[in-house]
């Protein structure tokens, strides 16, 4: 998929673990793993908002468009 998820990079920059983020935004670690691995088909605005709030970043920091 041409949309990349840079959640790993942002988490590393914030020195935050996936488990912590999952707890803060209220999703399961399994779902966060699906999101990180790029297997997710869609992201809810509410989830994106929660991630951006928790990591203090912009949606563009997490999502990236790459030409195939």
């Amino acid at each position: 998929m041409p949309i990349l998820i840079n959640l790993d990079v942002v988490l590393a920059e914030r020195k935050m673990k996936s488990k912590e983020l999952a707890e803060i935004i209220g999703i399961t670690t399994a779902n966060l793993s699906i999101l990180k691995s790029g297997k997710a088909k869609a992201v809810r605005f509410s989830t994106l908002e929660a991630i951006c709030k928790a990591l203090d970043c912009q949606p563009g920091d997490i999502l990236e468009f790459v030409q195939d």
Partner: peptide, 8 residues
């Protein structure tokens, strides 16, 4: 259903 499951 699959799409719904993979919507985070």
């Amino acid at each position: 259903e699959q799409e719904n499951d993979l919507t985070i």
